[in-house]
């Protein structure tokens, strides 16, 4: 099995704080890996560094390309779709404009996206800033699925959503994972269990645990790593 994402000894320093201190992790093609850890340990920064959105050192490879020095738009065009944290949609743009902005291939799959999120079809002319939190998250995920890219990077899809929406969204991501490599940051362990095959746990900017998703059932280990009971 080939490697889709290969991060080696990743360091990030922002505003004088050494946030990532040598993170290494791999995601194989077709695999779903969940990135776990307490708040503020560097999960979001890892994803942003992968996308080229923060200055970084170390090595980042996507497929067979070394993208460490690439700008974000070239990394994305390799086929890496990104759903940022806090359902970061363009609030001044309409839903339709948000999707149009994301078009990068000749035939974007609008039908597929609207099939997954029928609600968005009626709302294409509505300003994204006036949507509910759940609808905004749908726009953010739809934007990432439009080009049917092989790799999907998702930052806390369930954060702040009502339980019903979380399960709807998890269903969608589960369907997508059948054909897509995924690296997902998630605090909701039920979501992680449904999606991921492997987990990577970060603490204070370094990887402290790598293992199969079954490790979540080791309550003692999880309490030690995440400070929660699984």
């Amino acid at each position: 099995m080939s490697t889709a994402i290969d991060i080696t000894d990743l360091h990030v320093t922002i505003g004088g704080s050494h946030i990532l201190q040598g993170v290494s992790l791999q995601v194989a093609s077709g695999e779903v890996v969940a990135l776990l850890g307490r708040n503020g340990v560097g999960k979001t920064t890892t994803l942003r560094a992968l996308m080229g959105l923060v200055p970084r050192s170390g090595a980042v490879r996507v497929g067979d390309q070394d993208v460490t020095r690439w700008p974000p738009h070239r990394i994305a065009r390799l086929g890496v779709a990104y759903v940022p944290e806090d359902r970061d949609v363009f609030s001044a743009l309409t839903v339709g404009e948000n999707l149009r902005l994301a078009e990068q291939v000749a035939a974007p799959n609008y039908d597929g996206v609207y099939e997954l999120f029928p609600e968005l079809r009626q709302r294409t002319r509505q300003r994204a800033g006036t949507l509910s939190g759940g609808q905004q998250q749908m726009v953010a995920v739809a934007r990432a699925l439009l080009n049917e890219w092989p790799v999907l990077v998702v930052d806390e899809p369930s954060k702040g959503l009502a339980p019903r929406l979380v399960s709807e969204l998890t269903d969608v991501l589960a369907r997508v994972s059948a054909t897509t490599t995924m690296l997902v940051v998630e605090q909701n362990l039920a979501v992680v269990r449904r999606l991921a095959q492997r987990v990577v746990v970060l603490d204070h900017g370094v990887v402290v645990h790598l293992g199969p998703v079954a490790d979540l059932e080791d309550a003692g280990l999880m309490r030690q790593l995440l400070g929660v009971s699984a």
Binding site: M51, G52, L53, P71, P72, H73, A76, R77, Y82, P84, D88, F90, S91, A92, L93, E97, N98, R100, L101, A102, Q104, R143, N147
Partner: peptide, 23 residues
């Protein structure tokens, strides 16, 4: 399309880049 890119970029330049657009 460029108009939309500009409006989106005013709001969040980085996110436009992360969508694969050369800002």
């Amino acid at each position: 399309r460029y108009g939309i890119i500009i409006r989106a970029g005013v709001e969040n330049r980085d996110m436009v880049r992360a969508l694969g657009v050369d800002v």
